[in-house]
Design a protein around this nucleic acid. Structure first.
Length: 153
DNA sequence: GCCAACGTTGGC
DNA sequence: GCCAACGTTGGC
C-alpha cells in the first residue's frame, strides 16, 4: 500500500464536503498537471491512504485521511466544453487526463498545519510538500513520513 | 491582493 | 531545442 497527499481548496471542495457526499466518495477531477496525473493514473491503487490537505485558506495543512476508492479512469470534465477544466486536446479515444475516486476515512483530531510540518523539516527531509516552491497538488508520501506526521496528531 | 515559483506554450 | 511570455498555484 502507498501513501499520498492531495490538496484541495476548502472553498472549492473540503474534507467536510467529502464526508457529506451520499457515498462519501468523490471523483478527483480537474487535475491538469502531468506529474499529478501520472501519480493518479500509474501508481494509485485502491485502498491507498491519502492525507487530505487544505490549501489556499487561513490555515493550510492536513485535515483528514482519505482513501483511494476507485483506480484511474478518464476525467470526463476534460470533454465537457461547459466545464472550467475543459481541454479540447483531450480526445475521448485517447484521453489525456485521468483521475481517481477518493473516499472519506476520518477527520484528524486537529489540523497539522504546513507551518508545523515545516518545523519538522529535518525528519521530513524529501517530503515534496515542504520543498521550496512546491506546487504539485498530488504527491507521494514516504511511509516513514506518513507515520511520523500521524504521530504528531 | 501580492508575488515568487514554476509549468506550459509557441515563435524562432 | 531554446527561451520569453504567459497563466496558475498557493503561501503570506
Amino acid at each position: 500500500m502507498r501513501y499520498w497527499l492531495m490538496k484541495s481548496e476548502p472553498e472549492e471542495f473540503s474534507l467536510e464536503d467529502l464526508r457529506n457526499r451520499p457515498d462519501q466518495t468523490e471523483p478527483w477531477d480537474g487535475v491538469r498537471n502531468y506529474q499529478a496525473r501520472n501519480f493518479m493514473r500509474d501508481d494509485m491503487k485502491r485502498g491507498d491512504q491519502v492525507f487530505f490537505y487544505h490549501s489556499n485558506c487561513a490555515e493550510p495543512g492536513i485535515v483528514g485521511i482519505a482513501t483511494i476508492a476507485r483506480e484511474a479512469y478518464p476525467d470526463p470534465t476534460a470533454f465537457d466544453p461547459d466545464d472550467s477544466h475543459y481541454d479540447p486536446k483531450s480526445d475521448p479515444d485517447n484521453p489525456r487526463w485521468y483521475h481517481v475516486d477518493v473516499g472519506f476515512e476520518r477527520e484528524l483530531n486537529r489540523t497539522i498545519s504546513l507551518k508545523e510540518l515545516k518545523e519538522h523539516a529535518k525528519t521530513l527531509e524529501g517530503f515534496a510538500l515542504i520543498r521550496r516552491g512546491n506546487r504539485l497538488s498530488v504527491m507521494p508520501v514516504d511511509e516513514a513520513h506518513w507515520r511520523y506526521i500521524l504521530s504528531l496528531e
